[in-house]
Amino acid sequence: MTQEELNKITVAKTVDARGTACPGPLLEAKKAIGTIKSGDVMEVLSADEGTKADIPKWCTKQGHEFLGTIEESGFFRIFLKKS
């Protein structure tokens, strides 16, 4: 998805994991995904560079759809859709 599309997307849940280093954000995402419905979009906020690569790989393994990342100043907004 383009950055514009990502900015407009309706997010069912935002996980703010900016206070934790790797592997915190991945584990926060893992815990939160169980609380949303299939087809819902989740946004993970992370200040950890590694999360940007970890979440797409995790989505592939778990069957969720990785939608894209928006880089803000000092953190990333990572979007995915639950399978």
Binding site: C22, P23, L26, L27, A29, K30, W58, K61, Q62
Partner: peptide
Amino acid sequence: GVILSGAAALD
């Protein structure tokens, strides 16, 4: 512990 977390995330 970090590696275990990764394994947990992947079930």
